[in-house]
Design a protein around this nucleic acid. Structure first.
Length: 200
DNA sequence: GTCCCTAGAAATAAACTACC
DNA sequence: GGTAGTTTATTTCTAGGGAC
């Protein structure tokens, strides 16, 4: 059984929840109510990592807070959130980014597993020549688009002589993506001898 | 009128963060 | 470690609309 909050008489200025409230004076939020009681301790929006670890007062100064400066370890002063957002918001954003990234990696893994070996080799070649760590989304989209083009070409293979090899999505015409996809399409149609590029 | 459903506001509890 | 203060999630309350 958890302890319940003690019920105290409302201050003279306060109204009950169900009583009519003056429109010009909205009901205070829980924060406003709690903050109106006693002196407020000024609080830094986001404390740096060393101060949080030490549970010490952090003034939130950037790039190095006063506490880290005074401690003689300015190099340790790090913040895991931008100054204009709360730590919770920063953690939430990071979580969303990670989830998106996991989904993309799973899709990439799926694509690699299902593709013919020659295609997978080509994808790996592109992963090595582009920075897929930072441009994962672009890479997966690129492979997806390539899939669509190959499917379109396969479906129309009986009449290749009469039709163009593929019809790209109209929104891509004239873009770098279009050129890249066209290049991949050619590669997949006539794969060159595999020659791994030298590692960086 | 009343029953049901929905949306929004308000109240409250719980979780979380800063820092004494 | 533990408290004060803040934020978030959940619950409760209320009003409004539609069907009967």
């Amino acid at each position: 059984m958890k302890s319940l909050r003690e019920i105290l008489p409302a201050p003279a200025s306060q109204t009950t929840a169900n009583s009519p409230v003056d429109e010009s004076e909205p009901t205070p939020t829980p924060q406003a109510r709690s903050s109106s009681v006693g002196r407020r301790r000024p609080q830094t929006r986001v404390a740096c990592t060393p101060c949080r670890r030490k549970k010490s007062k952090c003034d939130g100064r950037r790039p190095v807070c006063s506490a880290c400066t005074n401690a003689g370890s300015p190099q340790d002063c790090e913040y895991d959130a931008d100054p204009d957002i709360s730590r919770v918001a920063a953690l939430r954003k990071k979580s969303e980014d990670l989830q998106r990234r996991v989904a993309l990696l799973e899709e990439l893994f799926h694509l690699l597993a299902l593709r013919p070996e020659q295609d997978s080799i080509e994808i790996l070649r592109r992963m090595r020549t582009t920075n897929y760590q930072t441009d994962l989304e672009h890479l997966v989209k690129f492979i997806r688009e390539g899939d669509l083009l190959v499917q379109a070409a396969t479906a129309g293979s009986s009449s290749l002589a009469k039709k163009p090899l593929f019809t790209p999505p109209t929104e891509l015409v004239g873009t770098a993506m279009y050129d890249e996809i066209a290049s991949l399409f050619e590669t997949l149609q006539a794969p060159p001898p595999f020659s791994p590029s030298p590692r960086r």
